[in-house]
């Protein structure tokens, strides 16, 4: 305790500096807690599956397959990220399908809301480089995206700026940490204490091309292989992501590579000439309902299961985690209590 800090400050240890661990640290620091983050990796993102995220803040598009809480809680994400990390691009999401997969577009529209139907001319207006390539699409104008790597780096800086500590190379046993409350945000590494957790492997590519420019994430629908492309700075494009029931964190298969490149090529043939800058793979932590949970076990709260919604749901989960930490009488909606 230092003289400048009030004695009622709560000591919180956070295990894991992935997107939800850092978001929780920021939320708790803002509410007056003292926070130390323990990260097994050597630097931000070294061991976090969030490093490979798309960074789409697309709650309504996700409603195509995700359940209601994802759509609702995800709506607070864009404003939160703008406030805490900056770099949020609010240009919406464009969903397109080749004409032979028009049924997929109808199905997507039936399952989602907050979009307008767009024709070829409107698509060309939004994305001039896609002119003439698609005659029907859906435009989700209120959605946003960010560069996930910049965003978690900015969060880490904010943790430090607010007086928090991040210890890299620190692999910890959360229950053994000496702190008033421990937030276990280790993702798939917490399987030892959260046996329901499973890994859903995702594979992604980063391509570089100066021949094509996109302003917003494009989702390309396909009955078997739905994929998306997110533009990033410097002519970079993130192409993602596969969804495979597997906890393997490394190695991309030739089939996945074909699918990812095939989707990019189907979106625009210019991608055939693009440079493959990076191949990324990791496994997302998910519970059987693919919804995130706060699991309270004594003074440890596990914040996990964000699945493919790390950037979309971390703001809401961090808010609820802070509520659960600071007021034991509050019952945030995603909270599950377990015997200690």
């Amino acid at each position: 305790m230092t003289a400048s800090r009030p004695s009622h400050e709560l000591d919180v240890a956070v295990a894991g500096a992935g997107v939800v661990g850092l978001a929780c640290a920021v939320a708790l620091l803002a509410r007056g807690a003292r926070v130390t983050v323990h990260e097994r990796g050597a630097h931000v993102g070294a061991e976090a599956c969030s490093w490979y995220a798309g960074g789409m803040l697309a709650p309504w598009c996700e409603g195509e397959s995700a359940e209601e809480p994802v759509v609702r809680l995800g709506q607070e994400a864009a404003a939160w990220w703008e406030r805490h990390a900056g770099g949020v691009v609010r240009r919406g999401t464009l969903v397109v399908a080749p004409s032979r997969d028009r049924a997929e577009l109808r199905r997507f529209g039936e399952r989602t809301s907050h979009f307008e139907d767009v024709d070829g001319a409107a698509i060309a207006g939004l994305e001039p480089d896609l002119a003439g390539r698609f005659s029907r699409g859906l435009f989700f104008a209120e959605e946003a995206h960010l560069d996930p790597r910049r965003a978690i780096a900015a969060l880490a800086e904010r943790v430090l700026a607010q007086g928090g500590t991040i210890r890299f190379g620190s692999e910890v046993e959360p229950a053994a940490l000496d702190a008033g409350v421990v937030l276990d945000c280790r993702g798939l590494a917490a399987r030892d204490v959260l046996p329901e957790l499973r890994g859903v492997k995702g594979e992604m590519l980063i391509l570089k091309s100066d021949e094509i420019a996109l302003s917003r994430p494009i989702r390309l629908l396909h009955p078997r292989i739905p994929l998306y492309i997110v533009p990033r700075a410097g002519g970079h494009f993130m192409v993602g992501a596969t969804m495979i029931e597997s906890g393997a964190r490394r190695r991309i298969s030739a089939r996945s590579m074909l699918e990812l490149l095939g989707a990019a090529y189907a979106l625009h043939p210019a991608f055939a000439e693009a440079e493959i800058v990076e191949i990324g793979t990791d496994a997302r932590p998910a519970f059987p309902d693919n919804l995130p949970r706060l699991t309270r076990r004594g003074r440890v709260i596990h914040v996990n299961g964000l699945y493919r919604h790390g950037f979309l749901l971390s703001p809401a989960m961090a808010r609820m985690a802070a509520d659960a930490v600071l007021d034991p009488h509050l019952r945030p909606e995603m909270l599950h209590d377990l015997a200690a």
Partner: peptide
């Protein structure tokens, strides 16, 4: 069954479900 998952056993969690 994805052969890549079968070979490494990495699909265990889903198969258990």
């Amino acid at each position: 069954l994805r052969r890549e998952s079968a070979g490494s056993g990495a699909g265990q969690a889903f198969w258990s479900l």
